[in-house]
Design a protein around this nucleic acid. Structure first.
Lengths: 246, 246
DNA sequence: CGTACGTTTGATCTTTCTCAATAATGGTGG
DNA sequence: CCACCATTATTGAGAAAGATCAAACGTACG
């Protein structure tokens, strides 16, 4: 079942999580011109103040979006998994307000920005699917604000882990709420606005209390219901329930 | 100079901060059907889990977008000023993932959702202007995450005040970096992820050190350059520099 | 003029950070 | 396969930012 797969297949599947696309729409997306590129962990796909020219789509691997505070502190503001388009957020903006880095080694399909605009103009359903995806990303930002602003360390870390589990599951990249977490505790800390030391202690507590199991970089939840609870996690903000119309 | 003004005039101006609109585009927006409504401070324009049917545009007054944590804590995730559309964020989403409340008494123009969609389909420049606005709002969310996640109390509060100053100024609603701040310290606290008590102390420090002056609900910055500094504020993320194309 | 709401202040407590050291782990070259 | 190095994870002790609790003070408005 691991036959050849079109690199943009995952993007199509991702968009279809929330939008209906006709066969022609799907074909049109798969027909977009792209360049496939393999990137090392840590490499940048975009830097703050850059002018984005292509739209990268994650084919394999993980990436994160981040901003720096004046004192050098880093805040990760989003995580991206295969099927995500990394640059929908810049579609109409000429200067990037943040940076994007690979979390792991992975492949990325680079699509010229104007090709996406052309396609959107031609196919309203595609335009709408992209807009929907953009709005869901915004929803995730809002939840991220809440997470970082109003939840204590334990809840905060648990919430992030829950979000990743559900997103990976929706994409078909994890099952039974167990997945590879390719983040160091320092990156985790930058995502939740804590220090690495405190993230470490928090993970230990979650583990001690039986909410999660870690082995190397793999993570799993013995009791998903309980984990959701600890993480104050309600997936409504991911808008995965089928959307009907507009 | 306070003659009659079309309620959607401010929306048009707002969109034109980042997008070019032709005279016909502007007319088309002003031609949208709407219902004008006056809302009291504290009233909701939308609740989490609601199905949004109209798109509200702020004509006068202020509003805020917020989410609740499981323990009852509230996080304000966005502030809106006249000219902002409150529901672009829900344009393609059928269930709201957050709530919106009036900060002050104010007027709102309610536009049927599908009218906006129809107009977008008809006028690509309008669609693009709306998308741009949506992306800028997302950028503000990202900065909000950074603010709440990685800045200390003083910087955090200062940053929020700076953002409001610049946004109001851009809209022509404040001058010389002095404006009416219609928020209680409790609301301010919910916006920056602190307690009201600590916000109070922080404001006092900012005042004592000469970074700001407060009289009633009015606020001003004796030295804007210094204030920006304290607030670690760089307005790039507001994308107010003229955008050229795509 | 009294009530409700918002602000201010003090005292104390907690969570999280900081600093520092030690232990694993993974990858590399030999 | 092993020794070595660089990262990452873990742990402890002490410090600090911010939270909590409680009370007093203002102010606006009916």
């Amino acid at each position: 079942m691991d036959e050849f797969r079109h690199p943009l297949e995952l993007l199509v599947r991702n968009l279809q999580l929330r939008s209906r696309l006709s066969a022609e729409d799907r074909e049109a997306i798969l027909g977009l011109p792209y360049t496939l590129r393999t990137l090392e962990a840590g490499s940048y796909t975009m830097r703050e103040a850059d002018a984005p020219e292509v739209c990268a789509v994650m084919v394999s691997g993980f990436a994160f979006r981040h901003k720096m505070a004046g004192d050098g502190a880093r805040q990760i503001v989003a995580l991206h998994i295969p099927g995500d388009a990394l640059d929908f957020q810049n579609l109409c903006l000429d200067i990037s307000d943040h940076s994007m880095q690979m979390l792991t080694r992975g492949e990325v399909a680079l699509i010229p920005r104007n090709e996406i605009n052309k396609l959107s103009a031609l196919r309203p359903a595609v335009a709408r699917a992209i807009l929907t995806k953009i709005l869901v990303e915004a929803s995730i930002f809002r939840e991220w604000v809440l997470n970082v602003g109003r939840r204590d360390a334990k809840t905060r870390v648990a919430h992030l882990l829950c979000e990743l589990a559900v997103r990976l599951e929706a994409e078909g990249l994890a099952d039974e709420y167990s997945y590879q977490l390719p983040m160091t505790q320092e990156q985790l800390a930058d995502a939740v606005g804590l220090t690495p030391v405190h993230v470490n202690r928090t993970l230990k507590v979650l583990e001690r209390d039986g909410f999660l199991t870690r082995t190397k970089r793999s993570i799993s939840f013995p009791n998903w219901q309980q984990m959701r609870n600890v993480g104050d996690f309600n997936q409504r903000y991911l808008h995965l329930e089928p959307q009907v119309s507009g």
